[in-house]
């Protein structure tokens, strides 16, 4: 792990309305094979990706939210949610399908600064 780089995936889009959320998740799962230090950050509408209770039968689209629960098996355990974004959407930590660390926007900015590679979705 000594030559592991710090990768951050920045997720800012709601699921289903666009393909970004699903694309990000797929890249995350693929990247996991390379044993890097991976963080997932959820900002703005990206926090909606983690909302519990998604039921996609009515829109005939695959519900990919259960896959966030498999991230642990992929040794991806650093999930960060921006507090301001969560609050603005009337959500709380209990609304998420997986355990997350809630950070202020300022803390998120700092964490972003520390990364070697940032991938934006």
């Amino acid at each position: 792990m000594s030559d592991a780089k710090k990768f951050m995936f920045v997720n800012r889009k709601a699921p289903y309305g666009t393909i970004y959320a699903l694309e990000s998740l797929e890249v995350v799962l693929i990247t996991a094979a390379f044993d890097q230090d991976v963080s997932l950050a959820f900002l703005d509408d990206g926090v909606y990706q983690l909302k519990k209770g998604q039921q996609t039968k009515g829109i005939e689209t695959k519900n990919f939210s259960p896959a966030y629960r498999a991230l642990e098996d992929y040794d991806i355990e650093k999930l960060y949610v921006e507090k301001e974004a969560m609050d603005a959407r009337g959500l709380s930590e209990d609304d998420f399908i997986v355990p997350v660390t809630v950070l202020s926007r300022a803390e998120m900015g700092k964490l972003m600064d520390e990364q070697d590679v940032v991938l934006s979705f």
């Binding site: 709601a14 699921p15 289903y16 909606y48 909302k51 519990k52 209770g53 998604q54 039921q55 996609t56 039968k57 009515g58 829109i59 689209t61 519900n63 939210s65 009337g90 609304d95």
Partner: peptide, 22 residues
């Protein structure tokens, strides 16, 4: 549109005064 609301896990969070349609 209800199916879109449910897809996003928010079927039980609709604000008052809005009408749900399929």
């Amino acid at each position: 549109l209800t199916p879109d609301l449910e897809a996003r896990g928010l079927g039980d969070r609709m604000m008052d005064g809005v009408s749900a349609v399929d």
